[in-house]
Design a protein around this nucleic acid. Structure first.
Lengths: 217, 217
DNA sequence: GACGATCTGAACTCACGGGTTCAAGTTAGT
DNA sequence: ACTAACTTGAACCCGTGAGTTCAGATCGTC
């Protein structure tokens, strides 16, 4: 039975900590904070229980660190998905659809769904988890998106107006329909459906926010 | 110490059950399922622990019934908020704004937020809670809203198209911006801000879905 | 090959909470 | 007043899980 840990332990005792954090997030995501037991986290990480306590003092500490790591990653991925908007091609619609589709794919990612569920469920017991959200959550993403839209407005490719509101509503048109359809992240949504939602969102968005009334569809 | 229960017990032993369910929801909302202890629920309901088990066999039964009751109420309230759309006045924009504002108020209600958080957090442990969502959740509301929009399209007051999608996006434009701003239902949002979000949502919606391009604002 | 640091498994303590039982009290209906 | 149904508080059983301890294994290093 001791050979079972070789998979994780063979590469020395470096970054056991990393393995623990990853395992912790997976277990917390499955079970929620209260029902997740440290032993199971240890097993998931291929590590003994005392080792967990050796690296991270508490169950709460464990929780916070695991959450923070995943939230940080999630934000970076999203910001990266905005990349095409830095050099929007001739076809703005296509660029928006690409970005929208990318954001939706990230939004429906298993880790993202799990993170959202975790935040929602434990926000009462960990009010300071809000800080994690504020720092790496939709806030920062919205600002970045608003920046892009401001440029587009200035360039006359979008109707001039409040870029923050445009960003807010763009995200809403993307995410909103998903929220209902995915049944709280339970059901996996295939890529084709994501693309359709993105296309529909962009169509509505451009109808409202572009100068000329294009009816591509 | 026995006098403490008179507040709840003075009106006889009728609807102790009701009190238990309400107390249960409040406690579950605060603590989540796992962390909520039955004793606390009993206290909250002004009732003894055995009484709780007398009315509702299990902790799980308790949970399900509490959830179901609140979800049912929430749905009914939302459907009622659509009422103005059955007799839309001359000013469609005003009607939509009224309905939107009403929906947002309900959405930000303490009970609604708590219900959403609960569903999100316990959806893993109670997969059948999805049925509650399906029956009394956004699904039914969306259909009702789509019905209204279909009528409006037929009457030529909205651009003809897919009413279901219109409903989906209308809701998204309303709820989406709120989700980010309310910090997962933690922060209370004042009525004026709700109204502004509703107005902005309706403006974008009408820009995309109405025949003539009106620019009221 | 010896040393120090770390990891491991297993057993342990301890608190908490679900669910039950029971004797005593309360209320409604007759 | 008497009964039946219900409620109450308190104690109880029992499983579970956080956090600790410890003896022994394992590894890096010299």
């Amino acid at each position: 039975m001791t050979g079972a840990r070789t998979a994780a332990g063979s590469r020395g005792r470096i970054d056991k900590r990393q393995a623990i954090l990853e395992g912790a997030f997976r277990v917390f995501a499955r079970q929620g904070y209260a029902q997740a037991c440290v032993q199971e986290i240890a097993d998931e990480a291929g590590v003994a229980k005392p080792t967990v306590y050796n690296h991270l003092t508490d169950k709460v500490t464990l929780f916070r660190h695991a959450l923070e790591a995943v939230a940080q990653t999630a934000l970076n991925e999203r910001l990266a998905a905005l990349e095409p908007l830095h050099e929007p091609g001739e076809d703005l619609r296509a660029t928006l659809e690409e970005v929208g589709h990318g954001l939706l794919r990230l939004h429906c990612d298993d880790r993202s769904c799990a993170l959202r569920r975790l935040l929602y469920s434990e926000i009462n017991r960990f009010p300071d988890a809000l800080d994690i959200v504020r720092q790496s959550g939709p806030h920062r993403l919205n600002e970045a998106l608003a920046d892009r839209f401001a440029r587009l407005m200035l360039a006359g490719r979008l109707q001039a107006g409040d870029p923050a509101q445009a960003a807010e509503q763009f995200m809403a048109l993307l995410i909103g329909p998903l929220e209902a359809r995915s049944e709280m992240g339970t059901r996996q949504i295939d890529d084709a459906e994501l693309r359709q939602v993105a296309i529909a969102a962009v169509r509505t968005f451009l109808l409202a926010f572009s100068e000329q009334r294009a009816d591509g569809g």
